[in-house]
Write a protein that binds this DNA or RNA. Structure first.
Lengths: 235, 235
DNA sequence: CGGTTGGTTGATTCGCGTCAAAACTCGTGG
DNA sequence: CCACGAGTTTTGACGCGAATCAACCAACCG
């Protein structure tokens, strides 16, 4: 059941057994990528979508001045490029953060699903729009929050999302990023990110080391980060 | 023809006459709002979508610390909250920047369209995803571009979008924002935005005064702003 | 081992924010 | 028609948060 994790994390709209079976059968094949491999290059025409089954994936853009901006981090159960169905190509690249296993949905199969079920359509559409809501939350982060708070907010988001799929027991979870990656996600330099991580640790809120996050004080962290999970649409 | 401007600016996928008629007939009513009026409040359940016919609209979030982040600026022909159909509520607010005229699409009518035509579905879905691509470009702006470049980039984006609907003849167009609004959109303070605007004017690239933009050197501005319109998906 | 990648720290610089005040615009009412 | 006040733009002085530059260290690995 390639799609069971996706379906479990998207409870609106309600999907019946027949629709779930249709979605499952839209998988043409599975594939794997190794860590750091580029999965989708920007502006290249696409004919299929990718559902992440195992591992972590990033979406990012490189700027001519040599800066890199991470746009999204995906975890198992996320579609990493479902938006390529209506858009046909992407304006950013997608890369594997770890070794990764994915399921592929040909655009033709997605179209057949939309022709068949308005409810499935709404579900798939919704999942791309939740990504967009996360994009907007990141605009707020980089545009209106201080460096420490940005990092704290990112940890909150990743904790809540991972906890939901059972990948963050005991307020501890793997987040396979380097400090450079954290900096690229939050619009900071690696040096400053490093200092802010120390501050978060010393404040007793979160500790991040070697790609592992340990939440020390969840309520404190949430309050500090101004974190409200409404934008994740977990209902 | 409420939907003709929207259809004119979305050429992919190709829509036939019957589909265009179906879309047009999904309009339940029109409405007007006055400048500065809040059109949608965050977290309030919604039952209809709004297509902007005349005027300018902003989407924004307020932070507890009193900062405000503008997330998007909409122009005639844009759906301002089509994403409310799959999401049912929004995590940001929507306000009129000028007096505004809109067409309303009940969610039930949108659902009927998706049940009837996979092509229309793809078109509507696509339009929400172009908004998301713009969101991502804004992440790159606030996360990885300097203050002057951010402003230059915003002017490029608005010029290209407005030119396309005939609202930017002679490289001049109305952009009904104050300097405070520009600052809120780019993650700057109004004071610094003011200084950067002066710099852009003195560099001979763009001049902004009283809600009017005059592009002085389009090629220079594009190059300076690192502007590539691919993310607007004008095809 | 030496090379490579990631993390840590210090010194210094600078972009942008903050605070404050003045000039300007425009709508409104006396 | 002028006075007034609210909102906007402009400018200056100053301070801080984050970038930059530059070492140095730790872990890992062929």
């Amino acid at each position: 059941m390639y799609t069971s994790l996706f379906l479990k994390t998207h409870r609106t709209p309600v999907i019946d057994g027949e629709e779930a079976a249709a979605l499952e059968s839209a998988v043409a094949r599975t594939a794997t990528f190794t860590a750091k491999q580029i999965m989708v290059r920007q502006q290249v025409p696409l004919t299929q979508c990718t559902l992440l089954l195992e591992g972590f994936v990033e979406r990012y853009r490189d700027t001519p001045e040599g800066r890199r901006q991470i746009l999204a981090i995906h975890i198992p159960g996320d579609f990493v490029d479902l938006h390529s169905y209506p858009l046909k190509r992407l304006e950013h690249s997608v890369a594997a953060l770890t070794d990764v296993k994915v399921a592929m949905f040909p655009h033709t199969a997605v179209r057949a699903l939309t022709a068949q079920s308005p409810t499935l359509t709404e579900l798939l559409w919704r999942s791309t729009l939740i990504d967009a809501a996360i994009n907007r939350e990141w605009i707020v982060s980089v545009g209106a929050r201080s460096a420490v708070v940005r990092l704290a907010h990112l940890f909150c988001e990743m904790y809540v999302r991972l906890e939901r799929i059972g990948m963050a027991p005991d307020r501890t979870f793997a987040l396979p990023l380097t400090q450079v990656d954290l900096a690229d996600a939050t619009g900071l330099t690696a040096v400053h990110a490093n200092r802010m991580l120390r501050q978060l640790r010393e404040q007793g809120l979160v500790a991040f080391r070697h790609g592992e996050v340990e939440i020390l004080d969840w309520d404190g962290l949430r309050a500090f980060a101004d974190f409200d999970p409404a934008y994740l649409f977990f209902d």
